Amino acid sequence: MPALPEIEAGTAELETIFRDLHAHPEIGFEETRTAGIVAEKLREFGFDDVHEGVAKTGVVGILHGRGQGNRRVGLRADMDALPIQETSGLDYASQNPGRMHACGHDGHTTMLLGAAKYLAASRNFDGTAVFIFQPAEEGLGGARGMIAEGLFQRFPVDEVYGMHNQPTGQPNRATICKGTAMAGASFFDITVTGKGSHAAMPQQSRDALVTASALVGQFQTILGRNMPALDSAVLSVTQIHAGSAYNVVPETAQIAGTIRFFKPEVRDLMQRRMREICAGFATGFDVSVDVEFREIFDVLDNDPALSDEWLAAAADIVGQDNVSNRSQPFTGSEDFADMLQVIPGAYGNLGHAGTVPLHNPGFVLDSAILPVGASIYARLIERRLPLEAA
């Protein structure tokens, strides 16, 4: 079956919620409208408790099943959008300039709301379901913020699950990678300070832009000449800023970017070599080079046994032929990893039509997966908190 019948029957409502969220995207820690809609819906569905303002804009809903069991299972969805100008051409495209749900978090939120409505009506489980609507997944530390505010002390769970859409062109294909599944990430900011001059007399300068440009190329040698051959990593310079005039050699230049890794020791190696290269260039070019690293995402590790449970719930909905545990580790990052550092759980992917990649201004989430994802979330609760027959 493509979805639980009760959830399938509510597809039109899910579509309405999704389109509204898509048209009104909000970036991290600014999801006030989105959080308000989530909290209103949970109360409308009859949730036992709804808590707002967790890590500024996070929402947590508590739902008790018909049984009296003590086990508690968490389900998590992210709510934030990206600072991207949408070019999808959808009739429900973003109405907020420079803001877009280019990663499908509007769909994730809608799917979890679909599961919430179904489970609130049936309560066909024994124990407590904890619904976590997280802000600021896109590199701003929403998961860490919720954890720091006592998420799992205030709302304890025994295990926690998440899900991400994947524009693979394979609708309803559910996949998971057991163990190490997604990369950790550091962001870096590097400032080169030299001496400015007239562009016609560059010999009077210590050119920060030339130094910065050379650093960009030199960093790539770390992967080819310092990284063990069997380890995987990514180093991407994504920003370089310098200068403000045609006839001025700039005094400063800024470089920014990210490194991705699957082992902390690989991260440490990359950061050490970047610092050493910067120190060498500072001496060689007679400039100063300041380096700052920020740890943004942990490595995401799926519990192997709970990965099987996620797949079993998905198989109940999409069929055994449409699930796979052979997904390969992915160099993208996801801050659900922070929750998995505290609570065991699993994070899977659900394929849908369309192949425009995530974080692209033309990305379109296929809304046909909304009842499918909602049903997988619901089945996770029913399977992990089974209600004993009377």
Score class of each variant (00 low, 15 high):
Pro2Tyr: 12
Pro2Gln: 10
Ala12Arg: 10
Phe29Pro: 08
Glu31Phe: 14
Glu31Asn: 04
Thr32Asp: 13
Ala35Val: 04
Ala35Gly: 13
Arg43Met: 03
Gly46Lys: 02
Asp48Ser: 04
Leu63His: 02
His64Gln: 09
Gly74Ile: 06
Ile84Cys: 06
Ser88Leu: 15
Asp91Met: 06
Met100Asp: 06
Cys103Arg: 05
His108Pro: 02
Thr110Pro: 02
Phe125Tyr: 01
Asp126Glu: 09
Gly127Pro: 04
Phe131Arg: 08
Phe131Asn: 03
Glu137Arg: 11
Phe155Ser: 02
Asp158Gln: 03
Gly162Lys: 03
Lys178His: 11
Met201Ile: 15
Gln204Leu: 13
Ala208Pro: 10
Ser213Val: 06
Ala214Val: 14
Ile222Tyr: 11
Gln239Thr: 04
Ile240Gly: 06
Pro250Tyr: 14
Thr252Gly: 13
Ile255Val: 14
Phe262Gly: 03
Val266Trp: 10
Gly280Tyr: 08
Gly284Lys: 01
Asp286Leu: 02
Arg294Leu: 13
Phe297Tyr: 15
Asn302Ile: 07
Ala305Glu: 15
Trp310Ser: 00
Gln328Cys: 04
Ala346Arg: 00
Ala346Asp: 00
Ala346Lys: 00
Tyr347Asn: 01
Pro361Ser: 09
Ala368Cys: 07
Pro371Asp: 12
Val372Gln: 01
Val372Lys: 08
Ile376Ser: 06
